[in-house]
Computed example of a mutant assay.
Amino acid sequence: MKKPQDHKVKKYTEQDHLRIMKEFREGKNVDNIAATFLEVLGLYGVTVEETSALLFYVMKTVLQQPHNKSMLDQLHIDINAPTETSDGTVTPVDKVLDIQRIYLGMYYEKLSK
């Protein structure tokens, strides 16, 4: 019977983690991220309806992250409750989709420059 080898596991420092995260973010490629999403959706056989629900869930979850939630709080936007306006009720789903529409427009504007 073979004797187990003594594997050395590299211990990463906080500085190592920060450096790695910085490299990932600087090298971020939205096309590669999208391709990965599409590959996963294809592997699971996700329908268009399910894809819509998943993308909505992802956006809502991202908006609820502390740094994004504080921005929404400053703008007095609660994505978890309906809002009554003179035009009727704005549902939480409408709010998330409106915010997504705004950010998508800003992203396309950046790309066109």
Rank of each mutant, 00 (worst) to 15 (best):
L104N: 06
K69A: 15
N80C: 05
E23S: 03
A34F: 07
G27V: 06
Y103M: 09
E14Y: 01
A35N: 10
L55V: 14
T51N: 00
V40E: 09
S112N: 14
L54S: 05
F24S: 12
K69D: 10
R19P: 00
S86C: 00
Y103F: 11
Y108P: 00
L111K: 14
A81G: 00
Y103W: 01
L75A: 15
I33A: 14
N68L: 09
Q74I: 06
M71D: 07
T47S: 15
D98C: 09
K11P: 02
G45N: 08
G45F: 03
H76D: 14
Y108Q: 12
V90E: 10
Q64M: 14
L72G: 06
V93A: 11
I79C: 04
G42H: 09
F24T: 03
H7L: 13
G88A: 03
Y108K: 08
E49M: 08
D16T: 09
D73K: 13
R19M: 07
K28F: 13
P66Y: 04
I102E: 05
T89D: 12
Q15L: 13
N68Q: 08
Y57M: 08
L72E: 03
V40Q: 07
D31N: 10
L104V: 04
V62Q: 10
G88V: 02
F24N: 12
I102R: 07
G45P: 03
D87P: 03
K3R: 13
T36W: 09
E50M: 03
V30L: 06
D87E: 14
L104E: 02
T36E: 10
A53Y: 00
I99T: 06
L55T: 14
E49Y: 08
A53M: 01
R25P: 00
D87A: 12
E50P: 03
A35Q: 10
V93N: 05
Y44D: 04
T51R: 02
E50Y: 01
E50C: 02
D94H: 09
K28Y: 12
I33E: 15
K28T: 03
Y108I: 03
I77L: 09
Y44Q: 04
M71K: 11
T91Q: 12
T91A: 13
Q64A: 12
I102D: 03
D31S: 02
T89E: 15
D6Y: 00
G42V: 07
H7P: 05
Q100H: 10
Q5R: 11
Y44V: 01
K113R: 15
T47N: 06
A81Y: 02
E23L: 04
V90F: 06
R101I: 08
Y107R: 12
G88I: 01
Q5D: 04
D94Q: 15
Y44P: 00
V62I: 15
Y107V: 08
Q5N: 05
Q65P: 00
Y107G: 01
F24L: 11
F24R: 12
M59A: 15
K69V: 02
D87G: 10
Y12A: 02
L38W: 01
A35R: 08
T13L: 13
H67C: 14
T47H: 04
D16Y: 05
V40W: 05
T36L: 15
I102V: 10
Y12D: 02
Q100L: 15
K8P: 00
T13P: 01
M59N: 14
Q64W: 02
Y103G: 04
P66G: 03
K113D: 11
K11C: 13
G88H: 05
Y107P: 01
Q74S: 11
K3T: 11
